[in-house]
């Protein structure tokens, strides 16, 4: 058995980056100052992940205001409107507004891979995109398409994003569908998501992650999701450990490699290592491969705690591997 760790997604901005972005927005600093600071910041974040022993890293996406915004900015026929609460967080995203069938003006992810792959070496680079169902259902749809048609069109564009990112050298493609862990998600939503995610990762499912966070999916939703052709299935375990554990014991992983979000990315208190080991043993003891990750993106806690949680995750990977008699996998490929 091998166990490895990775961060799930974005990192909170450092004080310096916050100030630089503010200055650029106010027009008191040129945009390239922000670009340079994002590069510097990404190098720090990548360095922390390498130090924690992760074989695949993210750049922290610190310049993304929310998960949808870079795609909204890169696509035609979609803009942003007012703010809406992002799931159960005290954080608000700007609602994407689709006014017609979206089309790509440029690509978001491949550019990032080219930009950060050298800093990540020898680790692989993971890119993260919003899932088409989450994107479509959390947007305002004035496109004339049905929500399902809009989600299909978004999936088509995301597939292009994924292909170009792989061409640029990405090691993993992660599709985030937090909407499916929400209490309002239904098996129909899950079926649509499975069909669309399968279309996105067709041909490279072995390098794909479907991630679900801010809750534990309802059993009926989860059952459908087991048909997804992504090798890795990520669940937020820290948010409701008992529910997650019960779900996994009842339904299993359907042949997927589990990526368990064991480190709570929304709280700053140190995670209890022994409780995590106990939980992991209960749900993934016999697997051949296991990924441990953060429960969600870390952009909702302060920067210094995100760094601390990164190191904690690295330590937990070691402890879990040791308790399971497994190897720690830290070199990609």
């Amino acid at each position: 058995m091998k166990v490895w760790g990775m961060l799930l997604g974005g990192f909170p901005r450092s004080r310096r980056l916050r100030h630089v972005l503010r200055d650029v927005e106010r027009g008191t600093a040129p945009y390239y100052v922000a670009e340079a600071e994002v590069d510097r910041f990404a190098s720090q974040v990548i360095g922390a992940q390498l130090a924690a022993g992760f074989p695949v890293v993210v750049d922290g996406m610190a310049d993304w205001h929310d998960i949808f915004r870079p795609f909204v900015d890169a696509w035609r026929n979609v803009t942003v409107d007012g703010l809406l609460r992002y799931f159960d967080n005290n954080f608000f995203y700007r609602i994407p507004v689709f006014t017609d069938e979206p089309d790509a003006r440029s690509f978001v992810l491949s550019r990032r891979v080219y930009r950060f792959r050298d800093a990540a070496d020898p680790a692989g680079v993971k890119v993260v995109m919003p899932g088409p169902v989450t994107f479509a259902y959390m947007s305002k749809n004035l496109s004339g398409l049905s929500t399902e048609e809009l989600a299909e069109r978004i999936a088509f564009l995301l597939r292009e994003e994924a292909r170009k990112a792989l061409d640029a050298g990405a090691s993993l493609i992660q599709v985030d569908e937090p909407f499916l862990a929400d209490i309002d998600a239904t098996p129909d939503h899950a079926r649509l998501a499975v069909d669309l995610v399968n279309s996105i990762v067709d041909g490279f499912g072995d390098r794909a992650v479907l991630s679900l966070y801010y809750g534990v999916p309802e059993p009926g939703v989860y059952e459908v999701l087991l048909d997804v052709k992504a090798r890795y299935l990520m669940l937020d375990v820290a948010d409701a450990p008992a529910r997650a554990s019960s779900l996994l014991k009842d339904k299993g992983a359907g042949g997927h490699v589990l990526a368990l979000g064991v480190v709570d990315a929304r709280r700053i208190i140190d995670d209890d290592e022994s409780r995590i080991i106990e939980l992991v043993k209960g749900v993934a003891g016999g697997s051949e491969e296991l990924v441990l990750t953060t429960s969600t993106w870390m952009d909702l806690i302060p920067y210094r705690y995100a760094l601390r949680k990164t190191i904690i995750l690295g330590r937990i990977v070691e402890s879990v591997a040791s308790s399971l008699g497994a190897d720690v996998w830290s070199i990609w490929g």
């Binding site: 909170p12 901005r13 004080r15 916050r18 972005l21 503010r22 927005e25 205001h65 929310d66 703010l83 005290n90 954080f91 608000f92 995203y93 700007r94 700053i268 952009d299 909702l300 806690i301 302060p302 920067y303 210094r304 705690y305």
Partner: peptide
């Protein structure tokens, strides 16, 4: 007093600890 935590865009509040 807490460190700065994002509310939206590049806007933050000091989430108490």
């Amino acid at each position: 007093p807490g460190d700065w935590v994002r509310i939206f865009d590049n806007v933050y509040f000091r989430k108490p600890v």
